[in-house]
Nucleic acid binder design. Structure first.
Length: 473
RNA sequence: GGCACCAUAGCCAAGUGGUAAGGCAGAGGUCUGCAAAACCUUUAUCCUCCAGUUCAAAUCUGGAUGGUGCCUCCA
């Protein structure tokens, strides 16, 4: 499999540290709100990476953290008159509701920053002892000048950063270099704090991820994921802290997803132009959201709009119709005792070839830097052939079933559920029987009236050569 | 100012040297009591523009134009 590695800015053959195992760390949410569609992109993208690696029989150790202490959280908790911990608990619960519904697998480990204070302090201690960190007025800082390769991920050098920063206000005069960042922030009035050798306080944002990654995955990991906006300073700083601490490479492959835009502008909590998952599912299902995200390459920007969501919904229905239709035909054949013509023929051959091709192309696309859009196209090709085959009596049920299975399994690798649980109420079944009778009596006005009633239950009935087919709206 | 990225049909989108996938929308048709679904046909002589390299470029090189992001919390 090839992965685009931000560190070298090109695609690279993926070779894990330990054969058959993959260690992945991905930066999780700061839990002070419901998460929005922009936050959902990395969760979904890298969950798909994980599922694909597992599909390829790798053992994946996946860590996604919760940032449960920072300025925004403190401010909001104070405003609401609750503790930071209470607010974090609440939005972690809410996170899981959305994440579970989006079919994002639970991480192998999902640590909270405030539960790893000991590990964070250990790391800071090493950095101070090694001379990479120093104590200033308001906290302990990492000295970027001490870390020679600072800037290797983002392609910034310290002089350029100085030039950029010159237009901005220099907030803290006690720092040696403007780019120095806080490892530990000393306590201010009204803030939660923990004891440390340098004074009570709380961890800086960057050190959390370094410490949690190291705690659960070791000094060097295979893949570190996140949004492109985290490249600098967050990931750059993680590299500096981790490599300064251990003297070993921190991450072999850096993967970064593109943004979701609104009217070609970045969507973000701070700009206020965001849609939460909770907002969107008022109108579109979780599967549609996931389908929408995966229908572009993960590194490309996506422009979000309701029209695109609507298009994704219809496209997903096309897949579901194919599978449901196959199921209907197969069940119907069993009921009616349909005798299958098992003589080999061209239609069977075509479908068999389409199944094999879909699988091969799906894997080839996913192997090419997780090209989910191309992988989905391969499955749409199979859907077309399967739809044709399903109209022919000379294609055995077993092969129709095989087509359905491969579609379900491979969409499952993308984390998209094709089969929807649905129980048809007995009232609906009775109405369908009534409608068949009405139709037999050529009483079409009554038949249409009954169809409307069925619609009131949230179901549709369509007439097929094999009889009425009921499906949920 | 520095560093990155992007530009493909009405819309979305794949394609990194061999002559434009796929989805949505549209048009016509088949099937149907009517629908729905499905199928068939159709929808970019061409990939923002201009040069260049090559037998061959949407794909490589240089330039232009337009757009976005990062350099500050941010997925």
């Amino acid at each position: 499999m090839k992965i685009y590695n931000t560190l070298i800015r090109e695609k690279q053959e993926f070779v894990p540290l330990v054969e058959g195992e993959v260690r992945i760390y991905t930066c999780g949410p700061t839990v002070y709100n419901y998460f929005h569609i922009g936050n959902a992109r990395p969760f979904i993208t890298f969950d798909t990476l994980r599922r694909y690696l597992e599909y390829k029989n790798y053992k994946v150790i996946y860590v996604q953290n919760f940032t449960d202490i920072d300025d925004k959280m403190i401010n909001q908790a104070n405003a609401e008159g609750i503790t930071v911990r209470e607010m974090a608990d609440r939005y972690i619960r809410e996170y899981y509701i959305d994440a579970d519904n989006l079919n994002i697998k639970r991480s192998t480990f999902q640590p909270r920053a405030t539960d790893c204070i000991v590990d964070i302090l250990d790391m800071i201690n090493v950095l101070v002892n090694k001379g990479y960190a120093y104590v200033a007025e308001d906290g302990v800082y990492f000295s970027v000048e001490k870390f020679e390769t600072y800037g290797k991920l983002s392609n910034f050098n310290l002089d350029e950063l100085e030039a950029g920063a010159s237009e901005r206000v220099c907030i803290n005069e006690s720092k040696i270099n403007r780019a120095d960042f806080a490892l530990w922030k000393f306590k201010k009035e009204g803030e939660p704090s923990w004891e440390s050798p340098w004074g009570d306080g709380r961890p800086g944002w960057h050190i959390e991820c370094s410490a949690m990654s190291r705690k659960y995955l070791g000094d060097t990991i295979d893949i570190h994921c996140g949004g492109q906006d985290l490249i600098f300073p967050h990931h750059e700083n993680e590299i500096a802290q981790s490599e300064a601490t251990t003297g070993k490479p921190f991450v072999n492959y850096w993967m970064h997803n593109g943004f979701i835009n609104i009217n070609n502008q970045k969507m973000s909590k701070s700009s206020g132009n965001f849609f939460t998952i909770r907002d969107i599912v008022q109108k579109y299902s979780y599967e549609v959201i996931r389908f929408f995200i995966l229908s572009s390459h993960y590194r490309s920007p996506i422009n979000f709009s309701e029209d695109l969501l609507a298009a994704s919904q219809v496209a997903l229905e096309r897949i579901r119709n194919c599978v449901n239709n196959n199921t209907f035909i197969i069940d119907n054949r069993k009921k009616t005792g349909f005798e299958e013509n098992i003589i080999a023929n061209l239609d069977i051959q075509e479908l068999k070839e389409a199944i094999a091709k879909a699988k091969t192309e799906f894997i080839a696309s996913m192997d090419d830097d997780l090209n989910t859009a191309d992988a989905m196209a391969a499955l749409f090709d199979l859907v077309r052939v399967a739809n044709i085959a399903s109209t022919k009596d000379n294609v055995p049920s077993s092969i129709l079933n095989e087509a359905s299975t491969i579609i379900i399994v491979l969409f499952g690798v993308l984390g998209i559920k094709i089969i929807q649980e649905e129980t048809i109420p007995s009232e609906v079944i009775a109405l369908v029987v009534d409608r068949v009778n009405a139709k037999n009596e050529k009483n079409f006005a009554l038949a249409d009236e009954i169809r409307k009633k069925i619609g009131d239950f949230g179901f549709t009935v369509s007439d097929t050569p094999a009889g009425p087919k009921i499906s949920k709206i």
